[in-house]
Amino acid sequence: MTALRKIFARWLPVYAGLYIVFLYLPVVFLPIFSLNTAVTPKFPLEGLTLKWYEELPNTPALLDAAWNSLVVGIAAAILSTVLGICAARAITRYRFPGRRTINGLIMAPLVLPEIIVAVSMLLVILQMGLDLSLMTVVLGHVLVCIPYSLTVLTSGFEGFDRSLEEASADLGETAFGTFRRVTLPMVTPAIISSLLVSFTISLDEFIMAFFLTGTKPTLPIYIWGQLRFAAKLPGVLALGTLLLVGSFLLLTIAELLRRRAARRSQNTGGAFA
């Protein structure tokens, strides 16, 4: 047993290292090849250039797609956050029958096969006689984003001590004043965090958009379309790199805000037994 354990102990760091490489190497290739002068992505690099990035703003179809994604992302983020606030408030503040079941149902899209959900949504939307448009993409994205919104918001609202609002009233503040001076500052970080997470998810969501989009493509759909042309690849890589960096920044900010919100609300109880 101990011999076996020793072997494991020696190889565990190697395994962990390989795992990380496997996970992130492709991601590192993206920015590297986006700087390559040659069109084909292979080593050794021919030379370094920023021309693929410089060409991006000169591609009208790309700009349209980016605009569409921005509109969809903002709409989906706001909708899923508003719905998430209602759900998170209900789940953290009240005890009612079916609370856990409802929580589970809201979280379910996280694990359901997305393609099945997308096809089902397409069928429902067509049945209802709606035309496919950016609006239908927004609906699909809200469904995908809500579990993330709910998670972030629940962690921000949890442990929000009700006596904080009572203390504010006790000190002479009105209901609106209490909301403005206590409730809002306490939950704002979580709300912003939820907006950022939903926006990021919507920005690079493909399957829902693929099924539900009409004539206007979102960025991932545009990228997918460009992949058919070998000559367009470096441009796609450059665009992908920008998306990657943007998403990474947004999610980092979101996580920092979420932690701050959680820390605040968890500290209110103090040594309360």
Binding site: S163, A169, D170, M186, N267, G270, F272
Partner: peptide, 20 residues
């Protein structure tokens, strides 16, 4: 008369210190 217009003030069991 609501709590915010009463001449009383309270020290809460959880203290309810505003964390922000």
């Amino acid at each position: 008369i609501p709590a915010n217009r009463r001449p009383t003030n309270m020290v809460f069991q959880s203290y309810a210190i505003f964390p922000h």
